[in-house]
Design a protein around this nucleic acid. Structure first.
Lengths: 142, 142
DNA sequence: TAAAATCCCTACTGAATTACTGGGAATTAC
DNA sequence: GTAATTCCCAGTAATTCAGTAGGGATTTTA
């Protein structure tokens, strides 16, 4: 049971962006360097985050990426879903609709468990914001 | 973020064993049939569960597998750990000791989050027993 | 206009993991 | 002794993951 490196790297990158919010766009090369992530790989992660609307990008010489919303408004759940898709500890217990595939459907006791676990994970990731992961930063009212 | 099919099949098998507890050993072929799992694959899963002490086995003609403890005494957490190892949503946040590997170590904000998520998942899986997954069975005091 | 910086896209690849399959040895009941 | 069963280990096909590579497209600076 693991989250992929996409999530680990992606979350770290988002925290990095949160720390320099709202000071204009940050070039990827800078994040790649400070977080020690492959530049090309990070590019792909940012593409997913951009498509999800979590970050905005600016091209050109002083371009880069920046959060579209304040760190306190962005949940870790949003980040993880953008990077890994819906939370689903089991095929039969995905957040998004029905990945029908198991014929047990209605009365599978295990399914009930997996759904319960899924909801619990969702509750945790949705209750944590990027601001919570930026210790020392007093972004909120001083 | 998924649990592997080991967990899905293994948990289903354990629920099946729980349902026929404590009526002596159940042959694997029977579980494989009723749960529609490959016999050979199921064998491997049971080996893990046996090594973890969760099930006992009897060889020979009327042999099979059976729970070593009552369903209400076996948590889903025990089953999942036997099948997949320690709960660890991230390398740096494993239940068992330190898989030191990330140099950020102490002050990584993300690490704190992963540990928090891990503890939450652990809490859920450890609070659920096989008895909870056996609806209709009135195993407890009638 | 030209050059530099930066994002954007897509395809590929090597490694690891997963999900099995198969064969045979040991054990027990009858 | 034979049939039913667990036990054990080796191999393998498919998938996923993590990362690489390279060529645009767009914007700013000069």
């Amino acid at each position: 049971m693991k989250f992929s490196s996409r999530s680990h790297y992606g979350l770290r990158a988002m925290v990095a962006l949160a720390r320099s919010y709202p000071r204009g766009p940050v070039p990827l090369a800078e994040i790649a360097r400070s977080e020690d992530i492959s530049f090309s790989y990070l590019e792909q992660l940012m593409a997913s985050l951009r498509r999800a609307g979590l970050v905005g990008s600016t091209r050109g010489v002083h371009g880069g990426y920046q959060l579209t919303d304040a760190p306190a408004e962005v949940t870790v759940g949003q980040v993880l879903r953008a990077l890994e898709g819906p939370i689903a500890p089991a095929e039969c217990a995905s957040e998004t609709g029905n990945s029908v595939f198991c014929d047990r459907e209605t009365d599978c006791p295990s399914k009930t468990f997996w759904e319960n676990l899924r909801d619990n994970i969702a509750q945790v990731v949705d209750a944590t914001t990027l601001a919570d992961l930026c210790p020392g930063d007093t972004v909120k009212v001083p």
